[in-house]
Simulated scan of single mutants.
Amino acid sequence: MVDAVADGRRRVTIADIAARAGVSKAAVSYALNGVPGVSPAVRQQILDIAAELRFRPNRIAQDLRAGTAKVIGILLDNIENPVYTEIAGAAVSAAAERGYEVFVSHLGTASDRKTEVALSHVDRNISGLILTSVTVEDIPLLASLRERGVACVQAYRGLTEVPNDWVGIDDRAAARELAAQVLAGGRRSVAILSGVRESVVARNRVAGFREALAERGIEPVNPDDVWGPLTREAGVTRARDVLDRHPGTDLLLCASDVIAVGAWDHAREAGLSVPGDLAITGFDGTGIASAGPLQLSTVNAPRRVMGECAATMLIDRIEGADGPPIRRMLPYEIVLRDSTGEGGAPAARPARAGRAAT
């Protein structure tokens, strides 16, 4: 019979080494960790067998048993939105440089699972959490994590009601600036398509759009219907609905690239030219905003830097950094592309840094 351990079909454990050496698992542990408890001859035998079987210690399990796990968790919203995967990828890389592993959990659209998932991370003895999609409904969860001594950092979305560190951009200012530059081209019939109302990021972006419109005496055609799911499919259906009800609309201010791509899908299906008949903006500056013929005007948010900062800030707290909560405002860039045309709008401007605050 083929040995599943020997041919590498499953991970080698100390039980496998003990069985091969004819000793106890405790003896194997003593030998591998270089502590007293076995003779030199038995220790060498165990080490030789471990090398033969290509044994690799499970560092996470060791840390968990010792109560000193160098493991952090990250809770993501919808991984179909590249914002979250880019933040997570950068956080994982930054954590690895500090010797930390990362448990990643995908909440999908079922954000009501957030408390359950967060506490399951705590049950696994993680040292801290990065949260990317907090809403006002999560204030009790954040307070509970704080009471349990779990370090937390909010990335992308952030709540000021709970004293956690946060890293992100000034979404309100960025939305206002993007809308102002596009409106300079003369478009007047405007709809806003945002994510869910519960999101602080969505509310700030909508506020920025509204401010830019108000400065020009423009009321959105859908003032009471700007909120909805943050998916490409929702972008299609919501763009279809608003354009059916307001056929003269010539600009869609979308609060995410994902929604904007869906809106562009509908424009193509409806035979509308972009930007001739309809201009569309996105937000976030993800890869889908400039994929092939799709060239969206957007706000470029530094997602990788956001993920790196979140991991660094969290590990600093875990390792003893003290002081008041840090709110780290990152630069953003307004990028004008084909989806809004020239239309007299100003050219793209260099990245503008928000004020860092502590």
Rank of each mutant, 00 (worst) to 15 (best):
M1C: 14
A4G: 14
A4F: 10
R9E: 10
R11V: 09
V12N: 08
V12M: 12
R20E: 11
K25S: 15
Y30R: 01
L32Y: 04
N33V: 11
V35R: 11
V42W: 02
Q44L: 05
Q44D: 09
Q45W: 04
I46V: 08
I46L: 14
A51C: 10
P57R: 14
N58S: 13
Q62D: 08
R65N: 03
I72F: 09
I74H: 00
I79W: 00
E80R: 09
P82H: 12
T85Q: 07
A90P: 11
A91G: 09
V92S: 10
R98M: 08
R98E: 15
Y100L: 00
Y100D: 02
E101V: 14
H106I: 13
G108I: 12
G108Q: 12
G108A: 12
R113N: 06
R113T: 11
S120H: 03
H121T: 02
R124M: 05
I126A: 08
T132P: 00
S133G: 07
V134W: 01
A143I: 08
A143W: 06
R148S: 10
C152F: 01
G158Q: 10
G158V: 13
G158D: 09
P163M: 01
V167H: 02
A173C: 13
A173E: 15
A175E: 02
R176V: 06
E177L: 11
A180W: 01
Q181I: 11
L183G: 00
G185C: 01
S189L: 03
L193C: 07
S194P: 01
V196W: 10
R197S: 15
R197Y: 15
E198Q: 12
V200E: 03
A202N: 13
R205C: 09
R205T: 14
A207H: 08
F209K: 03
E215N: 05
G217D: 09
E219R: 08
P220I: 03
D224E: 11
V226F: 01
L230Q: 13
E233C: 15
G235P: 06
R238D: 00
D241R: 01
V242G: 05
D244I: 07
P247K: 06
G248F: 08
L253G: 07
S256P: 06
I259G: 04
W264S: 03
W264E: 03
H266G: 01
A267P: 13
A270E: 13
G271Q: 07
L272H: 03
V274K: 00
D277C: 12
F283P: 02
G287S: 13
P293G: 03
P293N: 05
P293T: 05
A301E: 13
M306S: 10
G307R: 09
E308T: 14
M313H: 05
R317D: 04
E319P: 14
D322W: 08
P325I: 07
I326C: 11
R327D: 05
R328M: 05
L330E: 02
L330S: 04
P331V: 06
Y332C: 07
I334M: 07
D338Y: 06
T340M: 00
G344C: 15
G344A: 15
P346W: 15
P346T: 14
A347V: 10
P350I: 15
G354T: 10
A356C: 15
